[in-house]
Simulated assay, not measured.
Amino acid sequence: MSTVFDFPAVSLAGQPVHLAQYDGKVLLIVNTASACGFTPQYAGLERLYQRYRAQGFEVLAFPCNQFGAQEPGTPADIGAFCEKNFGVTFPLFAKVDVNGAAADPLWQHLKHAAPGVLGTEAIKWNFTKFLIRRDGSVAHRYAPATRPEEIAADIEALLAK
């Protein structure tokens, strides 16, 4: 069985990233967008990152333009927007598709490991979140409307293990 640590990714700067580098950490993997009603969640994600990163927690953000074309920008635009508006310091990755035939393999894995409501695997909108255990397995899937601060207790529980 695969874990998230078995997948490659591409940084926002276009560099290959092996997710194995996060082995042993608790992760929150999120599909993001800069022009979405949930975009202010970037601030809450950054607060979680600052609060727990010293304990082995990382937020990994994957911009996605599949929902209402709400992430049309270039990598430079995305990075500048996140830094200027929300002070984001956690890792941002290259834009991915999370649904459909071209869905990124990591996202295919996440959706299969933690289906949503009524067992559907499709990502419904931006800011769907997956909480990952230190062993790379998926612990929880959260809806876009779930605010980052609502996830804090689950993060603390995984960090304590």
Rank of each mutant, 00 (worst) to 15 (best):
Q70M: 12
Q70I: 08
E71G: 00
G73Y: 05
T74N: 12
P75F: 01
P75W: 03
D77R: 09
I78E: 03
G79P: 00
A80P: 05
F81W: 09
F81T: 02
E83A: 15
K84D: 14
K84E: 13
N85I: 09
F86D: 03
F86L: 06
F86W: 09
F86K: 08
T89M: 12
T89S: 13
P91Y: 07
L92I: 10
L92G: 06
L92V: 11
F93R: 06
A94H: 03
K95R: 12
K95P: 07
K95D: 01
V96A: 08
V96K: 03
D97P: 05
D97V: 03
V98K: 02
V98W: 05
N99M: 10
G100L: 12
A102F: 11
A102Y: 12
A102P: 10
A103I: 04
A103E: 04
D104F: 08
P105Q: 06
W107M: 05
W107E: 00
Q108W: 06
Q108K: 12
H109I: 04
H109F: 15
H109Q: 07
H109S: 11
L110V: 00
K111I: 00
K111D: 04
H112S: 14
A113D: 10
A113V: 05
A114Y: 07
A114N: 07
P115R: 03
G116W: 07
T120A: 13
T120P: 05
T120F: 14
A122P: 04
A122V: 13
A122G: 12
I123L: 10
I123M: 02
I123A: 00
I123S: 04
K124A: 15
W125S: 01
W125F: 09
W125K: 05
W125V: 07
N126K: 04
N126P: 05
N126G: 00
N126Q: 02
F127T: 02
T128G: 05
T128S: 13
T128N: 08
K129E: 07
K129N: 10
F130Q: 07
L131K: 02
I132G: 01
I132H: 00
I132E: 00
I132Y: 01
R133A: 12
